[in-house]
Amino acid sequence: MTFVLVVDDDPAICRTLSINLRARDYDVETAGDGRSALQIVDERMPDVVLLDLGLPDLDGVAVLRQLRSFTQVPVIVVSARTGSDDKVEALDLGADDFITKPFSIEELLARVRAAARRAGAEEPPLCVQVGDLVLDVSDSRARRGTEDIHLTPIEWKIVEHLVRGRGRLVRQTDLLRAVWGPSYERQTNYLRVHLASIRRKLEADPSHPRLFVTEPGMGYRFAPGV
């Protein structure tokens, strides 16, 4: 799962970008200031950074300069500054792209996809084995021992989203957006029905799931061995 870090001090922009990116199966974190952004990068390197220049503590240019001192992670500057000097400075410091506010969501998403492709951040093939259960997520194939297990396309979308985030909590709203789209984020009954079916097919004991675990009131995680 491609991890995008959104750095902007405008909560509305952070929310809009988070919703649209998560709906397209990106992993997203947001930071409202430069120091928080650098702390997130220190803990977990993103695949793409969306960086505002007008931050309340460290200026975006300072954040970009620090990033370029230790990583070549793709950085797309998203700024209300329209002057050519600002663009030239950001690009000279190592920004990969520059888009001005207000922007088209579809154009921004296209630029994120392009940056991820250039950086080789496309989804790698994924196949996991837990005991005698094999989940070939990349090829949408499951088997236990020599017996193939049929999952529906929707079930595979859920399984893939959880397995690619192995061990990490995936919130209900994020999973609903990723599988069905932004307008379904309140339909938690969809998840209960499909997770029950997935567990019947993949868990050794569906009444006591050990792979696809519910975190009550929050979401789900793929947690083999937990």
Rank of each mutant, 00 (worst) to 15 (best):
I198G: 01
S84C: 06
T146K: 12
A223F: 07
R117P: 11
D148C: 05
A95L: 00
E155W: 15
V28R: 11
L191K: 07
F98A: 00
I19H: 06
P74L: 09
R221N: 08
L162E: 03
D139I: 15
D205M: 08
V49W: 00
L93P: 00
L53W: 00
D132W: 06
R117S: 13
R192A: 05
L135I: 11
G145T: 06
R199I: 10
R111A: 01
R164A: 09
T30C: 14
A80E: 03
K201D: 07
P74I: 07
A62K: 01
S69F: 10
A114N: 11
D92M: 13
P125D: 11
D136K: 02
G181R: 04
A110L: 15
V128I: 11
H208P: 11
E123C: 04
E43K: 15
L17Y: 02
P216D: 13
D92I: 12
D27Q: 03
R143E: 04
Q172R: 11
L64Y: 02
G60T: 09
D25M: 06
S84D: 04
D139K: 10
L67W: 03
P11H: 02
D139M: 10
P124Q: 14
A204P: 13
L38D: 06
E147F: 03
P224S: 15
E160P: 13
H194S: 06
L191V: 01
E123R: 14
T2R: 04
V75W: 00
G34T: 07
E155G: 12
L202R: 10
V28H: 05
R221Y: 03
D57V: 08
M45F: 04
G217F: 14
L17E: 08
L93F: 02
Q129L: 09
